[in-house]
């Protein structure tokens, strides 16, 4: 599903170049449930952003579901994100002025889906994450765990091939964190590839594969690892 070959990425900070990724080789098969771990500054979020086509890379090759992801126009990148990838963020990133239902339906708006159809689908996905009764609530009327479940529903509604979650439990207490992780497990069982960035060992332990990153290179769990491990 995901193939990374010698991916390099550096950021300009003032006059110096900060190399964040120093040649990443990584394969993640379809249907995987993986976590990317590492201390802050290890490059794990950057890696996730490159996989999610939110950020560009300087060198190397990236194939997503067999498609070369390189030198895409902004419009193409937006369409790939919309069709193939669902995002879940640490800070939920729900639009504060839209109800839970409208937030979930938003990705379908960019697929130009009919409004009624969209709202009905959004309701289905809200029901799936157990929040059907909260459809008309605004994000600030929901708890952190509920907000993250809305965000997961939003990520799932386009039926993406990959769910990318950046510290999805970072802002939640441990009980809620487990609930959210159970949800991810359920999603994964339906065949969707789930990749989670985290620095919490117990969260990583709930996935089936752990990729460790250190100073911009993969320390363990890279190409060599297999689903059976």
């Amino acid at each position: 599903m995901i193939q990374l070959r010698n991916i390099r990425k550096s950021y300009k900070t003032g006059y110096t170049q900060l190399e964040v990724l120093k040649g990443i080789d990584l394969d993640i098969e379809a249907g995987a449930f993986a976590s990317i771990m590492g201390s802050s500054g290890s490059g794990k979020s950057t890696l996730l952003n490159i996989i999610g086509i939110l950020d560009e890379y300087d060198e190397g090759d990236y194939r997503l579901d067999g498609r070369m992801i390189k030198g895409l126009s902004q419009t193409e990148a937006a369409q790939y994100r919309n069709r193939f990838i669902g995002f879940v963020f640490q800070s939920f990133n729900l639009l504060p002025f839209k109800t839970a239902q409208e937030n979930v339906a938003l990705p379908l708006y960019y697929q130009k889906m009919d409004r009624k159809k969209r709202q009905a689908l959004a309701m289905e996905y809200l029901d799936m994450v157990g929040l059907a009764d909260w459809a008309e609530h605004l994000p600030n009327q929901l708890s952190g765990g509920q907000q993250q479940r809305v965000a997961i529903a939003r990520a799932l509604i386009t039926q993406p091939k990959v769910i990318l979650a950046d510290e999805p439990t970072g802002a939640l207490d441990s009980h809620t964190s487990y609930e959210v992780m159970q949800l991810f497990q359920k999603v994964n069982k339906e065949g969707i590839t789930v990749i989670i960035v985290t620095h919490e060992n117990d969260i990583a332990a709930m996935t089936r594969r752990v990729i460790r990153l250190r100073d911009g290179i993969i320390e363990s769990g890279g190409v060599a690892a297999s689903a059976s491990s």
């Binding site: 939110l54 069709r83 990133n93 990705p107």
Partner: peptide, 9 residues
């Protein structure tokens, strides 16, 4: 957020 969800420029 909108761009992450697939909004084109």
């Amino acid at each position: 957020i909108r761009k992450a969800l697939g909004a084109t420029p």
